[in-house]
Amino acid sequence: MKEELFKELSQAVIEGNKDRSIELTNKLLELGIDAKIILDHGLLPGMEVVGIRFRDNIIFVPQVLISARAMKSSLAILEPLLSKADLKGSGTIIMGTVKGDIHDIGKNIVSMMLRSSGFTVIDLGIDTKVEKFLDAIKNENADIVGMSALLTTTMGYMKVVVDRIKEEEINVKTMVGGAPISKAFAMEVGADGYAKNATDAVKLAKQLIGLESKETKIEQIS
């Protein structure tokens, strides 16, 4: 019965059926199931499928956004019930599109998938200057900072941010992504990791904070 409901909840997220997702979340709570378990067994597996289907061109941007909305409305119900430890579970990530760049569709999808995997994500939006990154990293005591760039003229700015982090000896991991970014480029700017899509970005983030073994590592630069 419980297993069935988890499956149905995942399915509701995959289909982006917000009402159904809310209904099932409430039902599971009424059955006395812990919020964290609902998150881990219902919502997150659903979003994982969404990420994979997006990567494989089975679904496209609108479907991802609709699923995200379903996920968000369920999460809103669970959030007050999740303990601080549950929420902080996987760590805090600062995300932003770098200075001069306004492309944010990819960054938003990555942020959303990270959130769906239990990370706390502070999204700084587009056109983000180095000071803003640094302030957020310090204020939030972040574990990782993720930078997105879609322009060859703005990707160089990633180095500005990475250099400042090193200069000021801030203890935070850096990861980069966006269409023109490659592993070679990520290494050149001295970032700790690169991922080429949102699904891999989640794996990468987990590796960077030591949640996933390095055996499965994809693009972490060591």
């Binding site: 061109n57 089975i58 679904i59 496209f60 609108p62 479907q63 569709i105």
Partner: peptide
């Protein structure tokens, strides 16, 4: 061009 042929990002 992706697995689903030629599509816009909106599919």
């Amino acid at each position: 061009l992706g697995n689903a042929g030629l599509r816009t990002m909106w599919g």
